[in-house]
Every structure is written in C-alpha cells, then in structure tokens.
C-alpha cells in the first residue's frame, strides 16, 4: 500500500548545515539560490532543496548528480533521473524555521506549513479565502482557537491546491474543508466540486509550533493509505 511520507526539515540558521546543503544543489538551483533578495529565504531554499534531493536519492535509488527538475505550468517541480521523468510525486513547503518535504510513489501530493502569526487580519483573510460554513465556524471560535482554526483551514486548502499544481491561481474560497476536520478530526477525504471523481486524502499535521497539512490523491493502490511522518 503506497503512503505519503512527510519529513520535517530544521531550518534554524546554521552556517555549516547551509554550506553542506548548498553543496547538494545543481547549477540551476545555485542560480535560483543567488536570486533570492534576502538571507532567510535563501537559507530555507537551500536546506529544503538539499533535503528533497537526499530523499529522492533514497526513494529512487539514484545519485544526486542524476537528479534534475522540470517545472509544470504554475511552477510545480517534477523530478527527473538521468533525463527521464521519475515515477514519484513530491512537494515542499517552508515557513520560519520549519520545512516539510512530502513524497509519494503514486498519486499527486501537496504539503503546506505555516508558523501561526497573529499579525494578520484573520477576519479579512477569512472573507477572502474561506467559504460560508468555514467563516461561520471561525466566527464561533474564540481566542487562540480561532487563530489555530484559520491556519488549519489555510494549510489544508493550500496543500490541496499545491497537490493539483494550480497553487494560488485557484480561488480557494470556492471549496470548503470537510466539516469533521474543521471541528478537529485530524484526517478526512475531500473532492473538489469541479472534479468529483478524484478523492484526496487530507491529514492535519499541525502541532504547537506550526500549522501544517498534507493532501494526497487516492489512486488504486494508495486508497486510504496512512500518512507516515518519520
């Protein structure tokens, strides 16, 4: 049974780890790394990309030098080994000092992590990104519970649109996270209204340090497969 695996990457500043990570990057990635305007996103990119490469090497039984990436329409990367498309799907997300890399041998996968911040206008954001039943649940939540629920919804929605490859070009206010997950259930299944034939397995991975979620497309041998978090 094919499960999605999610790995946490420690993104706290550390010069030696960053230098080691940079050594894993290919020429294109080093050019991308250089284009970042500020040090924090540069660090997150290098550490997450190196972790992704290490995971892909293990999963695909390949050397790092054999691995390259191509990009789909909205920028979602795909792996190649020795110039051929690799039979694996993966996704990466980072926020603050936390990175997550998700991968699965079958079925599309999307992951999102966000450090929760009270600096944003949650009411305004909810109007923009949530559906009516989600807004009602947020309105009923109190204190920290409201902030946590908002970020739970956000990460689940973003994991879904990252899994499809549409990213934020998709209006995420047009679909709603299942009611049971809005009320605290950690897992659930979801279907986009416009694509009801495709089932997505959702898993809320949030903890005290961050909100996070993974979405994994159910295909023949991955249906109802659990998410493993080593």
């Amino acid at each position: 049974m094919a499960a999605a695996t999610v790995v946490h990457v420690d993104l706290t500043p550390c010069a030696s780890r960053e230098a080691a990570a940079w050594g894993w990057l290919d020429q294109d990635e080093r050019a991308r790394w250089k284009r970042f305007l500020y040090a924090p996103p540069r660090r997150r990119y290098a550490l997450c990309r190196a972790a992704l490469r290490a995971l892909l090497c293990g999963a695909l039984d390949a050397d790092n030098e054999q691995i390259a990436f191509t990009f789909a329409e909205h920028g979602k990367p795909r792996a190649q080994v020795a110039g051929r498309p690799a039979a694996i799907s993966f996704n990466v997300s980072h926020s603050g000092n936390h990175g997550l890399v998700a991968w699965a041998p079958r079925g599309r996968v999307g992951v999102d992590v966000e450090e929760r911040s009270a600096r944003y206008d949650i009411d305004g954001l909810s109007e923009t990104v949530c559906g009516p039943r989600e807004r009602a649940d947020l309105a009923a939540a109190r204190g920290d519970g409201r902030l946590h629920l908002f970020y739970t919804l956000w990460t689940l929605k973003e994991a879904l649109v990252k899994a499809t490859g549409a990213g934020l070009s998709c209006d995420v206010s047009r679909f709603e996270i299942p009611a049971a997950m809005r009320r605290g259930k950690p897992t659930g299944t979801f279907r986009f209204p416009q694509a009801p034939d495709v089932n997505w397995r959702l898993h809320n991975l949030g903890n005290a340090a961050y909100a996070a979620a993974v979405a994994h497309e159910e295909v023949a041998d991955s249906a109802a497969a659990p998410v493993t978090t080593p």
Binding site: R35, F36, P41, D112, L125, T128, L168
Partner: peptide, 12 residues
C-alpha cells in the same frame, strides 16, 4: 518570488 514572501503574507 525572489523576496521569499509567504502565501499568507501575499494574500494579506
């Protein structure tokens, strides 16, 4: 994309 802005920050 080169600023490393988060998705929440971008939408906000």
């Amino acid at each position: 994309a080169d600023s490393g802005i988060s998705s929440v920050a971008a939408v906000s």
